[in-house]
């Protein structure tokens, strides 16, 4: 892992209607790292991503490495079942245009198996709204990877994806992270993700509660501050937590 800093955030504050949604968040991400962002619902995790992407106004400093390419996998997605758009059309929406080979390659990277005929028939040619939520998520990641990003911002969906396929996605992302040396920022609702995959963890609860290596950063006190007393007892079965 190199020491190159790919993202540096200093005193980031986001207000909405004069309410602070996030205040005073600072952290660095180095090339090749996996930063996992955790926190309870409404802690400002998605807001942090939006600020990093420049989608919303903020105060403080967000500094990306020059010419960095960012791939983004949003948590929410606006298609109804009958939205007339195929997976292939979706993957081709953002410029530049890719050839079919590139689409196949990207789909295989996120774990779609089968030959090209199968992929064409069951994934590319299908309506986006008819994919299962696990398939849709992988397609979103595949689309984000098409542009060969240096950094992937991945906002994990709160529900609808079974644990097995979630696990498989992380395995693959980890593999990509190693092979291509790309950097990942993940929002997760699952603490096991932190302990298994994170280089660093950023705990948010409207402000920065912790930042650093998971083993060091997540203390019982931090945990209590994030999720409150009750949940911390209930979730205490994590071995690192005890």
């Amino acid at each position: 892992m190199s020491d190159e800093t790919i993202l540096s955030v200093k005193n980031l504050t986001v207000d909405f209607n004069e309410h602070a949604i996030l205040s005073d968040v600072s952290f660095d991400v180095k090339k090749g790292e996996i930063l996992v962002v955790i926190g309870p619902n409404g802690a400002g995790k998605t807001v942090l991503f939006k600020a990093l992407l420049g989608l919303i106004p903020y105060r403080g400093e967000i500094k990306w490495q020059n010419n960095v390419r960012i791939g983004y996998v949003p948590q929410r997605f606006n298609t109804s079942r009958d939205f007339p758009l195929t997976t292939e059309e979706f993957m081709q929406l953002a410029p530049p245009k890719n050839n079919r080979e590139a689409l196949f390659r990207s789909l295989k990277l996120v774990g779609f198996s089968g030959d090209e005929h199968h992929l064409e028939h069951h994934i590319l040619g299908r309506k986006l709204g008819l994919l299962s939520s696990g398939e849709l998520q992988r397609v979103l990641i595949a689309a984000a990877l098409l542009d060969k990003p240096d950094v992937l911002l991945f906002d994990e969906p709160t529900s609808g994806i079974d644990i097995g396929s979630e696990e498989a996605i992380y395995e693959r992302l980890k593999k990509l992270n190693k092979e291509e040396n790309f950097t990942m920022l993940l929002i997760s609702h699952d603490l096991s993700v932190v302990h298994r995959w994170a280089t660093n963890v950023l705990c948010l609860n409207k402000k920065e509660v912790c930042f650093g290596e998971p083993r060091v950063a997540i203390t019982p006190d931090v945990f209590k501050e994030l999720y409150g007393e009750e949940k911390s007892l209930y979730k205490h079965n994590h071995h690192e937590m005890a």
């Binding site: 420049g54 949003p74 997605f77 929406l93 953002a94």
Partner: peptide
Amino acid sequence: DKMLMGIISEDLAIS
């Protein structure tokens, strides 16, 4: 294409 992207996900489109 750009319109569609904006309809599906404003965040993705802007980013």
